[in-house]
């Protein structure tokens, strides 16, 4: 059977949380295919990084609710995908106490980024486009 796709983690048998994570990795992966690639193209092809001052983010990018929502969705997808992906890597190379400690540090970092990332995109005062 071709349950083994040669690169990805084999689909966990027996359901439960591990299977849900396996599906979520693929779902968030598909979302990132669109969101992350288009974000990268916007911040390199449409506008050069040298133009992207804090003021530009506030008065141009984030004067639009669409782009705030887009960025927050990108944030949610990438945090889940990246942190659950690195979780697989940590579990592959560690065991016992080191594994628990690293996973704990990983989850804590993820939670901190979730909080500060959400805070900045949701609370930066809106400056209507001139």
């Amino acid at each position: 059977m071709s349950r083994y796709s040669r690169v990805g983690r084999p689909k966990p048998q027996g359901g439960g949380l591990e299977l849900a994570i396996w599906y979520m990795m693929r779902l968030t992966g598909l979302a990132l295919f669109v969101l992350a690639l288009s974000h990268f193209l916007i911040v390199h092809l449409v506008v050069d990084p040298s133009q992207q001052s804090a003021d530009w983010i506030q008065t141009v990018r984030w004067s639009s609710m669409f782009w705030r929502a887009f960025d927050w969705l990108l944030l949610m997808m990438v945090l889940f995908h990246a942190f659950m992906g690195v979780r697989t890597v940590v579990i592959d190379y560690t065991r016992g106490g080191a594994r628990s400690a690293l996973l704990m540090a990983l989850y804590l970092t993820g939670i901190v980024l979730f909080v500060i990332g959400t805070m900045v995109v949701m609370t930066m005062p809106v400056v209507p486009k001139a």
Binding site: A54, I116, G117, V120
Partner: peptide, 9 residues
Amino acid sequence: VFDIYLAGS
């Protein structure tokens, strides 16, 4: 995510 947070703070 940290550097974009700095853009606000």
